[in-house]
Amino acid sequence: MSTECHIFQARPSALRRREGLVFFCFRAATYFVLLCGALIFGTIVFKGAGSVFQVRAPFLNTTFLTEAPESLHVFEFHGQKMELGDGDYRVFQARHPDVARVKSESYIYSAGGIFPCIVGTVLLVLGSMAIALILGVSAAIYLNEYARDGRFIRFVRLAILNLAGVPSIVFGLFGFGMFVIFFGWNVSLLAGWFTLAFMVLPVVITASEESLKAVPRGFREGSLALGATKWQTIRKNVLPYALPGILTSSILGIARVAGETAPIMFTAAYVVRDKLPWQVDKFSEFFFQGVMALPYHIYVVSSKIPQNEYTERVQYGTAFVFLLIVALIATASIVLRSRLRNRYQW
């Protein structure tokens, strides 16, 4: 009898081969998804980085990040190919009147930068997250701390679940119908804030409730047993422990708010606006002005202007900046969450 052979001998079999094959398919599917992600990310980073960074000091293309979009004029002048933004073109024209006779092609939005869009997106995110956090955290406190399970609460939970599934464009329509038209706010920051806040509300409520649930029951009971009121207990002995969790999970909500285009298309976003948001006459006007926003700008530059070497810069550049911002937010949330998961274990 061979010593190599025994009752538990591992043997190659059709079963094993099939298992290997199936598992290989699963693995391939997984890595295919990751590869696609890397490809998309890589293309945009590779092509977009050129618009944002430069080889000379200060290595950052400050024009792109700090100026408003302009039209790009491409023309040939005395055998020299010129590419000038609108402002420069006018100056150049004033200096060389004969330029007017040269045939010039112009591409809108392809010169200058995207500063107003960045500002607009930041404003939209800040405002809507403030509203969503106030509403969402309060709702979560009620659901987790005060509410007793009953028909009404089940109804509220059902509403939250369903709200999470409503398409963002429907939120856009709703915001348009309610804030822009019914309330008469027109296309404004305020309308955008509320639309986005309502859209992200389910995310915030769910995240906050989960964080509150993670706080052990003993914390509450201990506090109540010492004669604290319910609110005192929540304020002193529940919220402080839940807050980090609430904030980190809500960062994902920020990524969603920053990334959505459809809800702001008719509630808050302008294709182009010359004034920056703080250039208003009255303080109240601040809330009732539309803004430019990065995602909407990407939509505009990718659908309304042709694809060529001149427009590519602004297209990829905007996408890159936008992706970078959203990616940073998302990464921050993922990293923070795993950190906190390790730190707060009761």
Binding site: S2, E4, C5, Q9, R11, P12, S13, A14, L15
Partner: peptide, 9 residues
């Protein structure tokens, strides 16, 4: 030894 098992399986 090695050929038999796959049949047995």
């Amino acid at each position: 030894v090695t050929s038999a098992p796959s049949l047995m399986e």
